[in-house]
Amino acid sequence: MPHLARQIGQRLGLSLLTLLLLSIVVFAGAQVLPGNVGRAILGPLADPAAVAAINHELGADQPLVLRYLGWIGKFLLGDMGQSYVFRSPVAPFVGAALLNSLKLAAVAFVIVVPLSIGAGVYAATRVGRWQDRTISIAGLSLTVVPEFVSAIALILLFGVWLRWLPISAAIRPGTDWLEQLRRLIMPALPLVIVLFGYIARMARAGTVAALEADYTRTAVLKGLPQRTVIFRHVLRNALLPTITVVASQIGYMIGGLVVVETLFRYQGIGSLILMAARGKDLPMLEAGILVVGALFVLATLAADMLQAGLDPRQRAR
């Protein structure tokens, strides 16, 4: 399969180029920060000599190109720099936060993927009827509600009135995993609500197209039971584009995490980025955003490969 190899090579190259541009954008964006770093750390009343000294110590007085190369070089070796606020390496913060966010994202995906694919496929088997229209319009409307709005509704309903779920997701050391999971349900729900509409729409569109395809008609005319037709012929073709949508939503997901983690006081990568933004903690902000962007590029790449692997047409072509 030399063609597939070339395709994968091309896709990898594109991903690397995207990552390179991404790092330049993040670095450039962060360097536009008003004032200088030393001044930001020491405050407006500090002695100019002290400011210059700390700038020199941090390397903030060197030319931009050198600073970029130094920054990205160390970054690739796992050294994400020193936090201006905590005066300690950034990497452990980013690592711990990322792990927490992955837990939250996993809970959200575990809830939303079966739910939305199920709803989308069901809607497709009832095209044009009220069940289809209800699922489509509800999904479409829920998708555009900002997470903090649905989170407020959920907190009031499940946290304050019914008292079923805790309203803070903060994890203290020693909390067992079952309690952690319970605390993650409510923060995961706003993400589920936004993602549901997207994934359900793609699953529905894919299923509708597959149901109309010739191979489905052949399968039905062959006399195969409806169950077999749906599971063996329709779903396999319908869910391919859905995989890409699920992966492409990882980028959105991280934006959503900023809001949700802040609202529920959960120490993830989203709240880390916001904390760094509020504290103007440049290295932390750069590292957080770059890690998030890299994760998204990798997820997209993985989805493309998975889709190519599952689709015999892409393999053969």
């Binding site: 964006g29 955003i289 962007g293 997209t300």
Partner: peptide, 16 residues
């Protein structure tokens, strides 16, 4: 597209 809208906006809003 590789960056969530909110995160890009945060970066620029912190800068400016």
């Amino acid at each position: 597209l590789a960056l969530p809208l909110i995160v890009v906006s945060l970066l620029v809003l912190v800068a400016l």
